[in-house]
Write a protein that binds this DNA or RNA. Sequence first.
DNA 1: AGCCGATCTGGGAGCGCTCCCAGGTGTGGC
DNA 2: GCCACACCTGGGAGCGCTCCCAGATCGGCT
Lengths: 343, 343
Amino acid sequence: MGPRAGDEERPTLEDVAAFAGVSRSTASRALNDDAYVSAAAREKVLAAARDLGYSPNQAARSLVTRRTGAIAVVLSEPESRLLDDPYRAAVMRAGYRELADVGRQMVLIFSDIREDLSRTVRFLEGGHVDGALVFAPHRADPLPKALRLLRIPVVFGGQAAGIRRGVHVVDFDNEGGARLAVEHLVAAGRRRIATIAGPQDQSAPIDRLAGWRKTLLDAGLDPADLAEEADFTLSGGANAMSALLTRHPDLDAVFVASDMMAVGAFRTLGAAGRRIPDDVAVVSFDDNATLAPAMDPPLTSVHQDPREQVHAMVETLMRLLDDQNLKPRQHILPVSLAVRASS
Amino acid sequence: MGPRAGDEERPTLEDVAAFAGVSRSTASRALNDDAYVSAAAREKVLAAARDLGYSPNQAARSLVTRRTGAIAVVLSEPESRLLDDPYRAAVMRAGYRELADVGRQMVLIFSDIREDLSRTVRFLEGGHVDGALVFAPHRADPLPKALRLLRIPVVFGGQAAGIRRGVHVVDFDNEGGARLAVEHLVAAGRRRIATIAGPQDQSAPIDRLAGWRKTLLDAGLDPADLAEEADFTLSGGANAMSALLTRHPDLDAVFVASDMMAVGAFRTLGAAGRRIPDDVAVVSFDDNATLAPAMDPPLTSVHQDPREQVHAMVETLMRLLDDQNLKPRQHILPVSLAVRASS
DNA sequence: AGCCGATCTGGGAGCGCTCCCAGGTGTGGC
DNA sequence: GCCACACCTGGGAGCGCTCCCAGATCGGCT
């Protein structure tokens, strides 16, 4: 019959050792492929573990090792933003993969800026995880500062609210991406290039706006009055486009700080009888895999690869776990332009 | 100075007890608000815990209680599908919230059908979590059957691959939703109602196709040759629409099994010079918050609320944790039709 | 007074694991 | 022939917590 079927008791390391005819210590060494175990003993232990269906008790293990093997991925945003942001979905997926590749389990934490600060902090310091990857794009978010006081290793994805020094950051080149987009429009002969900027309480949209402005100036064009701020939503983008068209009926291009706002801009342009790209070229930022290629016409957008960002973050975090005194640095990743029919 | 600043050592329960002048047992009782602790003792312990910045060691706790306080949310799909599926993002978000509401931590598991079975199973039985919410829509997915052999409490979201009995399931009324959509089209006077079905290796699209067929028959219309299967992608939807138009140039409506495929259908219809909804009405399934309202014209779609589904799943799982012998049942949730300009 | 039960407390045991240390065995060098 | 040193093994301790049990205290009732 082998081991009793339907047995409620899960086998322990001691059981495996007894079954293999060795001591608990030797079994432990074999399972954790330690040095100093004979090949014969290792074989026997591994076979016993397989036969008994043994899997180690993680609680017992991390009680003594003081490591959990889990890493938190913290997404700190107002509730509304998270629901429909495919970029975040890609971040989660990438986080899972990249952490699995280094043998770590991802524990996902959603943390609404306004509500969940103390719960999130309590969880992170509760010893559930060995470290954290934190995405907290809003400047007013108190989380990054709170985390600084904790002893837990943290790497930020994107600029951490108000903190420029002493933290590990992996960010995209937002300003450079905006520059790519605008240079593309200039090269195509556009001269009245407006922008729909994102909320100026976040680093990324601030940098994108700065990139647009500087590139125009470098090209000898005047940015004055050609920028309109919106809130990253469809309707926000539509309204901003209306305002821009009213002020500058002669504009021939617009750089939009996110794909979702570009949808709104498309609406307004269509309703106003402007053809894309013939009358107005549109370039966006995000290159959202769901949205950008699905639009009509397909949207030219600045492509940022979340997988690449998360990979760099995990790499940094692993080094940080080895060496708590690792010198913090800002790691800026390049972006590229995905050119489609809208420009 | 209070407790030493920058102390590496985290305080233990024993420290808290000593500080409060009581025993470890009493401190434990106070912190877990057990009965049989005097008000005075409780006060002292709570104050001590606060002053020392104590947070309990979860590993030690779950070693003895055999509970982790964590619940896995398992998304079992081929890698490609997960990246750009906002429905899944909503499921994750809802899972996090609903589990937080019952004091549980979500641990997210992505499990590629083809690659990750053994890793997922190993994790789930490793004692990391107390139970699991599993989304495994593909009929060929071996995960549900593998989980059956484990002793871990599981609730499925959507029909579990090939298993109809003995499992806990919370699903949407896919057939009823399709019926709503088609009845809406019939009521609007449409008579040549085609469908772009989803992959017939999954329960949900199978049921949606069945609902379309039955409703047509009930209305005295002939479904023959008006169905085309596609793979839930944009291009799949576009190609299916082409095939349908070629076969039936006179069709006046199409029920599409997902929003993403509806985007493809829109493309094809536009290229063929058909106006929506004047020439061809389009109704879809998903009511993806990002996509459906953003389309031109905005898409009529069957609305399913992932939060509601997850809520029911968590409720069932909590009951299951209390009572392992809870009688399994199929819980079917109603859906509604979000009517927009495309129909 | 005496007793019983309810209320409260402290110490011991032990969850399953890893790590340390004390040994045992074999091999090679002098 | 003996020591040094690698290699390998087993047992003890202990991680920080919860639970059990024995005991202490205190009313209230016979």
